[in-house]
Design a protein around this nucleic acid. Structure first.
Lengths: 343, 343
DNA sequence: TCGCCGATTGTTAGCGCTATCACCCTGCTC
DNA sequence: GAGCAGGGTGATAGCGCTAACAATCGGCGA
C-alpha cells in the first residue's frame, strides 16, 4: 500500500495555480483560457499558454469532474469475447469516442448475467461516467439494464429488439432475409439454417428472418441445426447436413459457422457451391479467402458504433432527440459460395 | 452545453455526509468503514453499512482520486485493429484488470506514429491513470514511449525486444523456429516464408526465427515473400509460391496469411499437405477448421495479459521487482496441414 | 465632467473525499 | 487514585478545479 513515498525531491505535478503564478494572473484566468472562455485578452491568453507550455502543465480531470459533476468518461460493458462482431464494434466505438474527446472505459464481464452486468454498470457509475453503453445481445443482459437508474444516459447495442428504450442494432432479420432470398433466387427449393446460440438476440433474429423469407416464398421450413458461434459447432452441424442429399443450400448464422460447414462439406465430398450453396453472416475479413470465397451478409459495424455514440451524446445533452433507436441495415456481399442447384 | 438543468426536483446523488448524517456519525467514520480501516467499532460499522445500503450511496471516485492523488485507472493505448492477437490480448487484459478492481480506459489510435501515441498517453496522464499499457508492435510506437515521463508506470507489450525497460512479449522468434523446425523435421529440404509487415516487431522476429532455424539446419534460405497480415496478401503471395514446384513447405507469419495461401494452393491445384505443407501463427479459433486444419503456433494471450498486469502492478507499487521483462513462449499446435514431401 | 456599461480580471466558496491531528473514553499500571 | 496507553471518533484542512459574483478599468453619451 505504500504508494509513492513522500519523495521530497520530485516536485509534484504542476497545478493551475503554478501556471497562474508564472503567467502573473489568477488561476481562474488560466481556467478560462483552458476552457476557451471568450472574455480573455489575447495577450493574457498567450502569456498563459506560454506558462502552460513551459511547465508542461496538464489539467487534472479528476478535479474538473469533481467540480463540475460531470466527466468526459464513457463506460462500456462488454462480454469477454473475441467474436468478430462485438470486437469490431468496440474498436470502432473507442475510436469514434476518442475523436470526440471522450475517454472510454471498458469493463468486461465473463458471463452476461444480471449480476455481472449490474456490477459492471455500477463501477461505471462510481466513476461518474457521463454515459454508458452496454453490448447486450442476450435477454439476461437486457433484464439487467432495467435495473439501472433511468436518469443516466444508457444505450444498449444489439439488445432486445422489443426494448422500448434507447437501442442501436443491426437489422439481423433483414440481413437473414437477404441471405435466404439470395439462395432461393438462385433456384434452391429451400434453405437450411445453422443457427447461433438461441439466447442471443442476434441469433434469434437471424433465424426469424430466415424463416420469414422461406414462408414468404412458400418454401418448406426445414428444422434448424442449433449451434454456437464457433467453427467447431458449424463443422458438427455441417457433417449432418452433408449426409442429406436434399440439402442444397445452407444459411449459417455467422461466417465462422459457415467455415466449419465448408470444411464438413469438403470432407464429405460435397462440392461448394456445386452440390451445396452456403451463405454466412458478418463478412469477416478472411471470408473472401475461404474455400470457396464466402457469400455473406455485411453489417457495417463502424456505422453501428458512430450511431451509438450519436444516440448516447444526444441522450446526454438531454434533448429529446428525433429517435433514440437506430437500426443499421446490412448488405449482401456476393462471392463464390452460391450457385444454382444441380439438375 | 446545457447539461443537467438545475432540476430542483431530483435529489443529487447521496454523498458521504448524507450517509454520515443518517448513521449518526461523522463523514470521516464513513470513509473509514469504506476503506476497511481497523479502528471502527463493529456496531458503528454495521450502522454505516445500513445507511449506505439505504441511500444507495456510491463513493465518488473522482473525489477520491483528487484527495489521494492516485486513481484506480489503468490506461491502454492500442491500435485500431481487429487483428486477432491484439484484440484477444486486450480483452484478456481488461478482464484481468477488472478482477483486480481496476478500471481500464482504452484509447485507440488510427496509426501507430509518435504523435498519436504521445497524444493518447497524454490523455491517460490527464486522467491521472495509475499505470499505462501500450501495445506497441512497431518502432514508431516504441520511440514515442521514450518521450513519456519516466516516473509513471508504463509497460510495453509486443514492443521492441531490444527495449531496455519494462516489456512483455511473446517469444516470436522461438515460435517461428518451432514452426520452421517442424517443417524441416517432416523432411522438407527448406521452408519458404510469407512475412508480416516488416515494421512490426512481431513480423521481423518471426522472420528472424525462421531464418535462424534454416541456418541452424544448414538449409537454403529462400527469399521472403513480403505481405501484410491479411488473408488477401497471403493469397497473392500464395499464388506466386504455387507456381514454383520446388516450394514444398511454407511458414506463414499468421493464420490469416496461411488461409490465403491455402486458397491459392487450392486454386492452383496444389494439394495441402500433399504437395505443399503450411504452418501458420496465432492459432485463431477457426484454424482447426481451415481446409485442411492448420498446424500453427499458439501464443497464450491470456498469459501475456496477466503478466502485463503483473508487471504493471509491481511497477506501480514501486518495488524493484525481480524482473520487469516477461517473455511468453508459444507452443506448436499440430494439425493436418503438414506432411512429408512427396518422394 | 459624471456616471454607466461592457470587457477583463480577481476573489471566494464549494465539489466529495482523505489525511492528520485532536479529543474522548476505557481499562490498566504503579 | 493519578497517570497513561490506545481504541474509537470527530474536527479541520486541503486535493485542483469551476461557478458565481465582485472589482477594476476604459470609453462613451449626456
Amino acid at each position: 500500500m505504500s504508494q509513492t513515498p513522500p519523495n521530497p525531491g520530485a516536485a509534484r505535478e504542476p497545478a493551475m495555480t503554478d501556471v497562474a503564478r508564472l503567467a502573473g494572473v489568477s488561476h481562474q484566468t488560466v481556467s478560462r483560457v483552458l476552457n476557451g472562455h471568450p472574455n480573455v485578452r489575447e495577450q493574457t491568453r498567450l502569456r498563459v499558454r506560454a506558462a502552460i507550455e513551459q511547465l508542461g502543465y496538464r489539467p487534472n480531470r479528476a478535479a474538473r469532474t469533481l467540480a463540475t459533476g460531470r466527466s468526459q468518461l464513457l463506460g462500456v460493458v462488454a462480454q469477454n469475447s473475441t467474436l468478430f462482431g462485438p470486437s469490431s464494434l468496440l474498436a470502432a466505438f473507442e475510436l469514434a469516442a476518442a475523436s470526440r474527446g471522450f475517454v472510454v472505459s471498458v469493463r468486461r464481464v465473463r458471463v452476461l448475467d444480471r449480476g455481472s452486468i449490474a456490477e459492471a454498470v455500477d463501477h461505471h457509475l462510481e466513476q461518474r461516467a457521463a454515459g454508458i453503453v452496454v453490448i447486450a445481445p442476450t435477454a439476461a443482459a437486457d433484464e439487467a439494464l432495467a435495473a439501472v437508474p433511468p436518469d443516466i444516459p444508457l444505450v444498449a447495442v444489439d439488445g432486445d429488439p422489443a426494448r422500448g428504450d434507447t437501442l442501436v442494432t443491426v437489422d439481423q432479420q433483414e440481413g437473414a432475409r437477404l441471405a435466404t432470398r439470395h439462395l432461393l433466387d438462385a433456384g434452391h427449393r429451400t434453405v437450411w439454417h445453422v443457427s447461433g446460440p438461441s439466447e442471443w438476440f442476434d441469433a434469434a433474429d437471424r433465424e426469424r428472418g430466415w424463416r420469414l423469407a422461406l414462408e414468404e416464398a412458400g418454401a418448406e421450413v426445414p428444422p434448424v441445426s442449433p449451434a454456437d458461434w464457433s467453427a467447431a459447432s458449424g463443422y458438427r452441424a455441417g457433417l449432418l447436413l452433408a449426409r442429406m442429399p436434399e440439402v442444397t443450400a445452407v444459411f449459417a448464422a455467422n461466417d465462422h459457422l459457415a467455415l466449419g460447414i465448408l470444411r464438413a462439406m469438403s470432407e464429405r465430398g460435397r462440392a461448394v457451391p456445386g452440390d451445396v450453396s452456403v451463405v454466412g453472416f458478418d463478412d469477416v475479413p478472411e471470408a473472401a479467402y475461404f474455400i470457396p470465397p464466402l457469400t455473406t451478409v455485411r453489417p457495417d459495424f463502424a456505422t453501428v458504433a458512430t450511431e451509438t455514440l450519436d444516440v448516447l451524446l444526444s441522450c446526454m445533452s438531454g434533448e429529446p432527440t428525433a429517435s433514440t433507436r437506430r437500426t443499421i441495415t446490412p448488405t449482401l456481399v456476393e462471392r463464390a459460395s452460391v450457385a444454382a442447384p444441380r439438375g
